[in-house]
Design a protein around this nucleic acid. Structure first.
Lengths: 115, 115
DNA sequence: TTGACACATTCCCATATAGGAATATGATGT
DNA sequence: ACATCATATTCCTATATGGGAATGTGTCAA
C-alpha cells in the first residue's frame, strides 16, 4: 500500500523538503509559478507538480492574474501539525533523566504492570 | 528518486499515521513491542518496522528488559517540527481577507514588482 | 540442550511518488 | 489566425516504501 496519498494528508504533503520550502517562501508573499521555481532552483514542471499537491491538500490557493497563476499561502491546515507536535512539548522540555522519572511515574500511576 | 529516506527526515518519519499513533501512545509510558502492537492493532513485524524507523530518526529509544525490548519516547526531534509549523502561526490567526492584505503589504514593502 | 517466547529481519509484491523530457492547454498581443 | 509566454499535464523510469508471510536471532527457563 506504500502510504496514504500526499494529497490527502498534510503531514505527508509537508514530508517533501521542497514543498516545505515553497510554503516558507510564500510567507513573504504570493508568487507566480516561474518566479517561485526560479527562487527555489527547481524546474517549472517540478514547481507546478508540488504546487498541485499543496493545492489539493489545501495549503496554497491559486488565482489567475493575466497569463500568470499566482500562488498564495493558506496555512490553516498547518495548525493541526503545530498542535500535534506541541502535544509533546513537555517531553522535550524535561531533561532526559527527568523524562524517565516522569514516564515511570505515569507507568506506576495508572497502568497494569509490565515487568 | 521518490523521496528522502524516512529514516533521515523527521517530517517524513511522522508522515505515516501509524507512526504518529505510536508516538502518541508512548507519551503515556514505555512499552514492549507486543503490547504496543496489540494496543494499536498492528502485527508484531509491522510494529517492529515502524519502531525501527522511529528509532533511526531518533524519535524513540529502546532498552532491553529481559526478553522484551521496551520502547520509550524521545520527543526532542519533534521540536523542530513544532517550530517550523509555528512559523506560520500569524497566517492562520489572521482572517483570510486580512491575510491577503498582509501579504500585499509585504509584497509592496520590500520586493521587486511583479505586475 | 531443548523449547518457548519476544522481537527483528528478509523476501516479495503492489503502489506511490519525484523528476526529467516532451507535449498540451490557456491567455495575450499582433 | 498566429506566435509567444506561463503553466499544467502526460509519459516514463528509478526508487522508496508498507504490509503480509516466513524465518532468523536472542533470551530465559527447565
Amino acid at each position: 500500500m506504500a502510504r496514504a496519498a500526499t494529497t490527502s494528508d498534510v503531514f505527508n504533503a509537508i514530508a517533501e523538503p521542497q514543498r516545505r520550502q515553497i510554503l516558507v517562501l510564500l510567507r513573504s508573499g504570493e508568487r507566480p509559478v516561474n518566479e517561485l521555481a526560479d527562487e527555489l532552483g527547481m524546474t517549472q514542471p517540478g514547481a507546478s507538480k508540488h504546487l498541485r499537491v499543496l493545492r489539493e491538500v489545501g495549503l496554497v490557493r491559486d488565482r489567475k492574474e493575466g497569463k500568470q497563476r499566482v500562488y498564495g499561502l493558506d496555512a490553516r491546515k498547518l495548525r493541526p501539525v503545530h498542535e500535534w507536535a506541541g502535544g509533546f512539548e513537555r517531553f522535550w522540555n524535561a531533561s532526559f533523566d527527568r523524562l524517565d522519572a516522569y514516564v515511570q511515574s505515569l507507568k506506576h500511576a495508572g497502568r497494569k504492570e509490565s515487568r
